[in-house]
Computed example of a mutant assay.
Amino acid sequence: MTTAVREAPHHNKLTCVKHYDCRLPDCVERYRAYQRERYHGRTAGTWQPLVDAEPVRQHILKLQAANFTPVRIGELADLPFETVIGFLRAYGCNGYRKARKRRCTSEVAAKILAITPATAKPGIVDAAGTIRRLQALVAAGWPMQDLGPRISLSCRTVRALIRQKRVYGRTADAVAALFDELKNEKPERHGVSRNSASRARTYGKRHNWATVKYWADRMDDIDDPHFEPMYGITRRELVAKDANELMRFSGLDREAAAARLGISKAYIDHAFRDHPQYAIEVAA
């Protein structure tokens, strides 16, 4: 009876030799080189000893509370998923069960501790910022079929992103980087035909999508789902909306609402006429 040997998931680190008994010449030589380096470093007193893993574990728990998954932490730190999960619980591979990490290299600790919610996005985030950036680029003349390939997505996926409530953090990062790259560029200078750029601008205008120029002064709010863009909204529409809320929630009639807003009753009448969706005759 023979026992099947599991294939290592990758052959670019020491894991395949240490935990999967890999005997590929390149992998064995990499492992031996590491051992030689460690031996000479310890002899010379330059080898960095392992550090306590508990601060790293506590940091990972804080990141998890902020919606960072172990997979996302691994992506941001450029570390295998197994390395991250090993700080949290025992992890088995190739039939062996390893205890939770008690120590780790200072390099691994530094990579994980460098991740903070202020400087990186979690695995899944609110889609508001992603949607607004894509809409602004379309309004600037960038067709969706040209935006998709720049972030390794299809046009169909880009269209779906604009309708989603949540997106992957890496997708949000990719769209943010694309926005910064293209926001001051003319599509026609990057292979987009005049007709395609014109259709994209018309599409954005028809849907009243806020432009790059609009967001230029509001970048602190672009990712805030509670921020309500007022792009393309006229003063009459704002008045109609404010008067509607005053009359419904404060019990005021049109004349009293006009006095509260510092305008004439006639102006509210005109605002309601132009925007009937807000029109209300008497206080609720």
Score class of each variant (00 low, 15 high):
residue 190 H to C: 11
residue 255 E to F: 09
residue 165 K to Q: 14
residue 203 Y to M: 12
residue 105 T to C: 12
residue 127 A to G: 07
residue 32 R to L: 14
residue 9 P to H: 09
residue 216 A to D: 14
residue 275 H to G: 00
residue 20 Y to W: 14
residue 21 D to T: 06
residue 238 L to M: 10
residue 248 R to N: 13
residue 173 D to M: 08
residue 201 R to V: 04
residue 254 R to F: 05
residue 239 V to R: 00
residue 282 V to N: 12
residue 232 G to N: 07
residue 283 A to G: 14
residue 220 D to F: 11
residue 37 E to S: 15
residue 126 D to V: 05
residue 89 R to G: 04
residue 96 Y to W: 13
residue 114 A to Q: 11
residue 264 S to F: 02
residue 119 T to M: 06
residue 44 A to R: 15
residue 32 R to H: 15
residue 54 E to G: 01
residue 262 G to I: 03
residue 173 D to Q: 13
residue 104 C to M: 01
residue 118 A to L: 11
residue 20 Y to N: 06
residue 178 L to I: 10
residue 89 R to N: 10
residue 254 R to C: 08
residue 268 I to P: 00
residue 248 R to S: 09
residue 149 P to A: 11
residue 107 E to M: 04
residue 45 G to Y: 07
residue 146 D to N: 13
residue 140 A to V: 02
residue 54 E to L: 08
residue 277 Q to W: 08
residue 181 E to M: 13
residue 236 R to H: 07
residue 104 C to I: 00
residue 175 V to I: 13
residue 158 V to P: 08
residue 215 W to K: 09
residue 97 R to D: 07
residue 3 T to I: 14
residue 266 A to L: 11
residue 11 H to V: 02
residue 93 C to N: 09
residue 186 K to G: 01
residue 141 G to D: 07
residue 60 I to Y: 02
residue 77 A to R: 04
residue 249 F to T: 14
residue 177 A to Q: 15
residue 30 R to T: 07
residue 246 L to T: 01
residue 70 P to V: 02
residue 280 I to S: 05
residue 85 I to K: 02
residue 30 R to W: 08
residue 67 N to G: 10
residue 194 R to C: 06
residue 75 E to Y: 09
residue 90 A to T: 00
residue 85 I to A: 07
residue 82 E to P: 04
residue 259 A to M: 07
residue 38 R to K: 15
residue 191 G to N: 09
residue 168 Y to P: 03
residue 252 L to N: 06
residue 243 A to R: 00
residue 120 A to V: 01
residue 174 A to T: 08
residue 244 N to P: 00
residue 98 K to Y: 13
residue 106 S to F: 01
residue 192 V to Q: 03
residue 1 M to N: 12
